[in-house]
Design a protein around this nucleic acid. Sequence first.
DNA 1: CAGAGCCAAACATCACACCTTTAGTCCTTA
DNA 2: TAAGGACTAAAGGTGTGATGTTTGGCTCTG
Lengths: 232, 232
Amino acid sequence: MANPAVARVGRDTISETLGREIVDGVHQPGAVLTLESLQQRFGVSRTVARDSVKVLESHGLLYSKRRIGLVVTAAKHWDVMSPSVIAWRLASADARGAFFELTQLRIAVETEAAALAAARRTEVQAHQMLDLAATMRRLGESEQLTEFITADIAFHRLMLEAGGNSMFAALADVVAEVLTGRTKHGLMPTRPMPEALDAHDGVARAIADQDPREARRYMEVLVAEVRSALEE
Amino acid sequence: MANPAVARVGRDTISETLGREIVDGVHQPGAVLTLESLQQRFGVSRTVARDSVKVLESHGLLYSKRRIGLVVTAAKHWDVMSPSVIAWRLASADARGAFFELTQLRIAVETEAAALAAARRTEVQAHQMLDLAATMRRLGESEQLTEFITADIAFHRLMLEAGGNSMFAALADVVAEVLTGRTKHGLMPTRPMPEALDAHDGVARAIADQDPREARRYMEVLVAEVRSALEE
DNA sequence: CAGAGCCAAACATCACACCTTTAGTCCTTA
DNA sequence: TAAGGACTAAAGGTGTGATGTTTGGCTCTG
């Protein structure tokens, strides 16, 4: 072992730790790190330090400059859509802010995604969608909240994927995160509102009926509720 | 110079080249590369090869596995929202498909962004927005298409930024790409339609008036045109 | 005081050695 | 003969030292 005196860390931990720190504002934009300092701090070799930096660099959290070092970049240059950055933000002090932004993004995308799904869904997807809506109703009415959320996530993921747009599909994880996080941020009633259940039903039926307009309309109902919860 | 026989390439070129190739389907999902092969092909050392791999790995295009090599991943695991991946897709054989997806994303986000901007814009932004709408009308009516597109991009970027949601703001480049690309993909009339100009005006005024509902309504008009052009 | 030139810092790259994991093979054994 | 364990070699992972390259900043000069 090279250096027993320093707490060695797992390989991925370095970019994880630094990523969180930067997002958290521990290193302000413009701050300069050096490879040497990372080697010291984490007790690793240049190779590993460079690897970690490369990852952060490819997400826009910093850039390396000769003769200078590793310069932390301002938030506006971050790759905020990247899953890693999203995760870091959700683990940061401003988790709530990140959560709100994600919710807005979700709201924006899902109305369109519903319409798209209605136009493109397969027969199988249509059935699954109806099933999930029914399951949600059952679980919601019996107040099995955890299971309800699981079904909810599956519902939304399926819808996002059914449209065939890979960028929408990529947001499935974001939506899952948001749906899970709603409880944490006090935006979730202990018992899903009947209107929400109806709306999910409506979306599922419209998608099964290949009716984009209706799908969008019901999704807008759903989304309106989320939006109003946000603004409270 | 280490090896004059092999065409050496600039440092970033490797991940660029490989990224494009993977997105383009040159390396099918499941295909295996090795560091050694990259070193050979690009005439670089292991360090550089590894750096490039790290970048691709952090965008989800491949993963490396001991004893196996570098495994190309299926498109569903790609970080499709990342600017690099977007650029690669837009340069690929399926540029048209990527462009459509981006347009749908844009459509989805911009209606919500308009409403958000109306709620959050600063006084300065309100003025700039009105100015840009006026500029667009002037340039549009005199058929100065290039300048018109520039103003159009500025308009949309400003709107996306005015809402204060960093994820929406991050889509400004995407929207710019889409607006520029419309001419390439034959989705742009040589002369902007008067309705489009009116709609931009309407959006700008609604945002200046801090009227989210109106902003959304006008943006939906704009977006409806884009959508119908898509479906032709 | 301006500009040329030099210096040193920090990343970039290379070469090489050794460690670690693990797919696949082969061999043993019940 | 099939299950399971031991061995092997392939490929990435990590560490190190040397050298290349860029460039901010200092110094020296006219």
